[in-house]
């Protein structure tokens, strides 16, 4: 059980990374999405780690994944920073959305485990925070607040759609 989660996570790490940097990057470049509509799905890896995973481990994994994405996006530190931020706020968001009966800490926060009505809120909050941080770092100045908000909004719509599609197609248990 324990080792299977590690294997699943490792596979998910690689597949999401490749999917992100080879397919989604090309898609958003194709419609000049790099202006307003970035499709960013790889944080799904961070979102779906088991609830009991220590915060430090989540952050280190997020850092590694973000750096790997950054290598392909040629933007050192940008995705890594946003990912570490996502990993940092993840326990807070999970705590915030805690159902009345609580969590089974051995489970992962997936749609299959906690139901769609829980998962769509969780994914939305986490993705919004991730994208907000990412675009703040991308613009790097509060002067561009309008740009930050617009990019976050549009990218959120596209990325969220992709993310839900993936979750519905594969419907991972862990």
């Amino acid at each position: 059980m324990n080792s299977s989660i590690i294997v699943i996570s490792a596979v998910r790490f690689v597949i999401l990374l490749l999917f992100q940097v080879f397919i989604l990057k090309s898609i958003s470049l194709g419609w000049q999405g790099n202006i307003y509509m970035h499709i960013i799905v790889f944080p799904l890896f961070i979102f779906l780690l088991p609830i009991r995973t220590p915060r430090a481990v989540v952050m280190l994994l997020a850092f590694a994944l973000g750096l790997a994405v950054d290598v392909f996006y040629d933007s050192p530190g940008l995705h890594a920073g946003a990912s570490v931020f996502s990993a940092f706020v993840r326990p807070i968001v999970i705590k915030l959305l805690e159902p009345r009966e609580g969590y089974n800490v051995n489970h992962s926060p997936t749609k299959a485990r906690l139901g769609f009505s829980w998962f769509w809120r969780y994914a939305a909050i986490m993705l919004l925070l991730h994208l907000g941080f990412y675009f703040s770092m991308l613009e790097f100045s509060p002067v561009f607040i309008a740009d930050i908000l617009l990019k976050t909004t549009f990218s959120f719509i596209a990325s969220y759609a992709f993310m839900l599609m993936i979750v519905f197609v594969f419907n991972p248990l862990d």
Partner: peptide, 10 residues
């Protein structure tokens, strides 16, 4: 620490 590294890289 990690955000500091990221910030430096950025």
């Amino acid at each position: 620490l990690l955000e500091g590294i990221c910030f430096y890289l950025i």
